[in-house]
Simulated scan of single mutants.
Amino acid sequence: MVSAWLPALAALTATVAALLVLWPLRRSDRRAPFIAMVLAVGVAGACLYLLVGQPQAPSAAVAAAPTDLGQGVQALEQALQRDPQRADGWALLGRARTELGQHQPAADAFARAVALAPDDPGVLVEAAQARAQADAGKQFDDTALQWLRHARQLAPDAERASWLLGIALRQRGQDAEAAGIWEALLPRLDPGAASALREQIAIARGKAGLPAATAAAAAVAGTALGVQVRLDPAFAARASLPADASVFVIARVPGGPPMPVAVEKHPLGALPLQLSLDDADSPMPTQPLSAHAEVEVFARLSVSGNASRQDGDLDSAPVRVRLPHAGTVQLVLGAPDRP
């Protein structure tokens, strides 16, 4: 029996090498050949180990090493015939079949992976998606829905599981439940993705006959905090700021832990910036902005792109406000300290 982790290590090593060698294809936007070639090398690495990684393997197997994705799939299938209890092998086969556009064989391979690893949330999500892709109407059936629910139970913060579960529920006309799942996902998304998801939530709520703003949503809207961020003109004139610097707008509990209760990230070039902080910007669903009566708001100019303060970062003077706050909080980066 081949050790379970050695083939995976071989595939990982081959894939990393492929990423380094083939990266120019990705940078020139030739994504399809880039993905296919990287996956082919990864499959080949795993298969080559499974074929010749044992001391008794004949040297002829080296000559038969796969040279493209199709041959890699065949080699992997042969290896799985000898060692069929490999969930990672079946999942790898499912990904390869998906890349080749062979949706039903991919779904079958992922089903074998789920049978061997029923509590792996990543495999469950991939299997559910493959099952829907294999369906003529691209529908998530009962089995796929069950896999997605189980994956979300195992990993409540898994964004892909929540997103696909919402789609599956909407396909069944369960729009209210879909909207609820997507609303719980919002705080974990960046502003752009959150904005797109809000549109889908609005559609789902409308289909479910729910009002545009429930009592809870009205409470959130009442605590939404308008913020304006700009650079001090004198500071901007003399400072040499990297074009790829980021600006974080942060609300946190005064005198409390440094973890923000709401945060947004924007490029430096977006300044001057007008925005609204709300519960969708809360990194912790259990501590949304609307749960606090008072917050401290400030902006951070980050050269590293990290929200945590680093050497060379610049913070604006913090402004303490009580919620709800009707006005706009003015934050100025680089303003001189006032006595």
Rank of each mutant, 00 (worst) to 15 (best):
G192H: 09
L231M: 13
V227N: 01
G53I: 15
L12V: 10
A128M: 08
L197W: 02
A193D: 12
D337N: 12
L154M: 10
W182L: 04
A335M: 08
A217P: 00
F34Q: 04
L277Y: 12
V220G: 09
S195D: 11
A10V: 07
V123L: 11
E126D: 15
G45S: 07
A75G: 15
A208Y: 07
L6F: 06
M259P: 01
P121M: 06
I250C: 03
D68K: 05
D141R: 07
A134G: 15
A243M: 02
A280F: 11
G255T: 05
R238N: 11
M284I: 14
P272G: 08
Q174W: 01
V2M: 03
G305T: 06
E264P: 00
L185D: 00
P339M: 06
D120Y: 06
R82I: 11
F140R: 00
R97Y: 11
A155S: 15
L169S: 00
R252N: 12
Q74H: 03
T67I: 12
G206P: 01
P324R: 03
Q153I: 13
R152Q: 14
P339W: 12
L210T: 00
D29R: 05
I35E: 08
A307L: 15
A236W: 07
S304Q: 13
L185E: 00
P233T: 02
R97G: 07
P118N: 05
A117N: 08
D281Y: 02
A196P: 02
Q310C: 11
T13V: 14
L69H: 04
V332M: 04
T286I: 10
W23F: 09
A219M: 10
V21C: 01
V52N: 05
D108E: 14
G180E: 00
A11N: 08
A224V: 13
S246R: 12
A262K: 06
V295Q: 04
Y49E: 07
D108I: 08
A151T: 09
L9Y: 10
D120N: 14
L124I: 14
S3L: 09
A115L: 12
W163I: 01
Q287W: 06
P318N: 10
A219P: 01
D315Q: 08
D279H: 08
P242H: 03
L231P: 13
V321M: 12
V38C: 11
G42R: 02
L154T: 02
D315T: 10
G70Q: 04
Q287A: 15
V227M: 08
D244N: 13
N306H: 11
W147L: 08
A179C: 06
Q310Y: 03
A107R: 06
A115Y: 03
P272H: 05
P55F: 10
Q71H: 08
L100V: 09
A155E: 10
S316Q: 05
E126W: 07
A293H: 09
L92F: 08
W147G: 07
E126G: 10
Q171H: 04
L19R: 01
R322W: 04
H292C: 05
L189H: 06
P324A: 13
A219K: 07
C47D: 04
G334T: 10
V220Q: 13
P285L: 04
G312N: 09
L154K: 11
D175M: 02
G70T: 14
G72E: 01
L289A: 05
G89L: 10
A91K: 05
E177K: 01
A40S: 15
A151I: 13
R26C: 01
P258K: 03
